[in-house]
């Protein structure tokens, strides 16, 4: 595939209302090849945004352009190059993985011998070769998730939208999928929505934070991390001090040690004489931003 220079996904003043609830408001975003990590608390509007980008639901107002074509009016322009892995998807329990992927390939408009080869490659890629002929009803949650990943990649998508893709995967499969995602991001647009900040940290080239239907931040990970420099601290406290510290500061991590608890917190000033500055990570950034939006001064 050598079309990456042409790939642009844009949203303009996107709004979505469910009856009286405004799920997304005046959302503007432009994406080019790379991996966008979409972060936001529950109810922020991430799934609504992804369902609209995946052409499942239409915006109440606004446009979505794929390489300049309005996909709200002409969804077919996007669907043939789209891969989508919903967070909570199902399978037909009485079909095997091979049959299910053949079925998905057909409805994606693929046919012929190359489909069989593609399915075979994907089964290897997601490590399901040995279980390919077993009914999906007998699969574990992680195995089903891998089938979902395989179906999303069937048509070699130019736009890949994945919602919580590593849920249910064991650490080895999770690392494997993160590497795969990083490889895929080079020449296509990947939108990764997750609550697992470390997944975003290890794969995303670009980050968007969404809160209450608004785009709150959009930056490269390095930029976000730079903003937090000098605001993250670590120090040791006694167990009984922890509740009070949690009241005072935004605690982003705790680690139990032999001599007490190592606290990691975000604070504009040194929170304690013993506190030493720590390297910020994306979890600090995310929690800090969400806490600010909720009215908590970090």
């Amino acid at each position: 595939m050598n079309t990456s220079t042409a790939l642009v996904l844009e949203t303009h003043d996107l709004n979505k209302a469910y009856k009286s609830v405004q799920a997304l408001q005046d959302f503007n975003l432009t994406l080019t090849p790379g991996i966008l990590g979409l972060l936001g608390p529950n109810g922020a509007g991430k799934s609504t945004l992804m369902r609209m980008l995946a052409t499942i639901t239409k915006p109440t107002e606004g446009t979505i352009l794929w390489n300049g074509q309005d996909v709200v009016k002409e969804p077919e322009a996007l669907r043939s190059v789209l891969g989508y892995l919903p967070q909570d998807f199902g399978v037909y329990p009485n079909l095997s993985a091979q049959e299910f992927l053949e079925y998905m390939a057909a409805i994606k408009g693929m046919s012929g011998e190359k489909v069989r080869r593609k399915i075979s490659d994907l089964l290897d890629l997601v490590n399901l070769r040995d279980a390919a002929r077993r009914p999906l009803g007998g699969y574990s949650g992680g195995m089903r998730q891998r089938v979902g990943i395989a179906q999303a990649l069937l048509n070699d998508p130019q736009l890949l939208i994945v919602d919580e893709p590593t849920v249910g995967l064991d650490p080895e499969e999770r690392a494997r999928f993160r590497n795969l995602l990083a490889d895929l991001g080079g020449e296509r647009i990947v939108i990764l929505s997750t609550h697992i900040v470390s997944d975003v940290e290890s794969t995303a080239t670009d980050i968007a934070i969404i809160h209450k239907g608004h785009l709150k931040a959009r930056a490269y990970p390095e930029q976000l991390l730079k903003q937090m420099e000098g605001s993250v601290w670590e120090w040791m406290v006694a167990s009984e001090e922890l509740p009070a510290i949690k009241q005072q500061f935004l605690v982003t991590g705790t680690l139990r040690r032999m001599d007490g608890i190592e606290v990691r917190a975000v604070s504009a000033e040194q929170p304690s004489p013993e506190a030493r500055p720590a390297m910020p990570n994306l979890e600090d950034v995310y929690l800090s931003m969400v806490a600010q939006r909720k009215g908590v001064a970090a």
């Binding site: 469910y18 609830v21 799934s47 609504t48 639901t57």
Partner: peptide, 30 residues
């Protein structure tokens, strides 16, 4: 889901949350 009243057997928590107005919650981390 916005054009017809589809009810999944398992409603994912985020969907259920998004259907409700977000309430500002102050001091959640504390």
């Amino acid at each position: 889901p916005s054009r017809e009243r589809l009810r999944r057997v398992r409603v994912k928590p985020e969907q259920a949350d998004e259907a409700k107005p977000s309430q500002p919650r102050v001091k959640v981390p504390r």
